Amino acid sequence: MLKLLNLKATPRSFNISNFFFGNSVTNHEFLVFFRVTIGFIILGHFLAVLGDFDLLFGMNSLIPADIHSVQMYSKIVFYNEIIDFITLYTKSEGLSVTIFQVTYILLCILIIVGFFSRIAAILLVFLQVSLMKSSFYFCYGADFFTSMSLMYIALFPSDDYFSIRNYFWKIKEKSNLTPFRRLFQIHICIAYFVSGFEKITGYNWRNGESVWKAIHLPGFPNDFHLNFDSLGNYPWIFVLAGWFTILVEMLYPLFINIRRTRMIWLCLTISLHLGIALVLNLYFFSAILITWNIANYYFNDEKKVALA
Rank of each mutant, 00 (worst) to 15 (best):
N293E: 10
P157M: 13
Y104D: 12
N18I: 06
S117F: 01
F156N: 02
M263T: 11
M72E: 13
S24G: 03
M263K: 10
L47A: 09
E173W: 09
I83Y: 10
Q185R: 14
F34R: 06
D301W: 06
Y79C: 12
R182Y: 08
I82M: 15
L31S: 02
D229V: 00
E29Q: 14
I164L: 14
I246G: 03
I86R: 04
I186C: 14
N60Y: 13
K133C: 11
L266A: 02
F136C: 09
I290W: 01
A142N: 08
G242Q: 01
T10W: 03
L107N: 05
G51K: 07
N80T: 10
Q101G: 09
F285W: 07
T26E: 15
Y137V: 13
S158A: 12
V129R: 15
R35W: 05
P221A: 07
F197V: 11
V113A: 08
N296Q: 10
Y140E: 09
I38V: 15
C189I: 06
S158T: 13
I288P: 02
S158P: 07
A120F: 02
S13Y: 09
L289E: 03
H225Q: 05
W292T: 01
I67Y: 14
V305M: 13
E29C: 12
Y192D: 05
I288H: 00
I67C: 07
V97H: 14
E173G: 09
H273E: 05
L107M: 06
G232T: 00
A287P: 04
G202P: 01
P157I: 14
D160P: 08
H68G: 04
D143F: 06
K213W: 14
L278M: 14
L110N: 10
V32F: 04
A191T: 15
I112C: 02
R260K: 10
V211F: 06
A48W: 11
H28V: 02
Q101N: 13
L183K: 13
I190G: 05
M132N: 10
Y167A: 14
W205A: 02
S135P: 06
F21T: 05
F100V: 09
F57T: 00
R260I: 02
S230Y: 07
Y234E: 12
L31N: 03
N300M: 08
S24I: 07
D301T: 07
F57R: 01
S17F: 08
L107H: 00
I270C: 05
R206L: 12
Y298C: 05
A9N: 15
N176V: 10
A287V: 07
S69H: 15
L123Y: 03
S92C: 12
F78M: 12
I215R: 01
I83E: 07
I82D: 04
G208I: 05
V211A: 10
V125C: 15
F46V: 01
N300H: 02
C108F: 12
S130V: 11
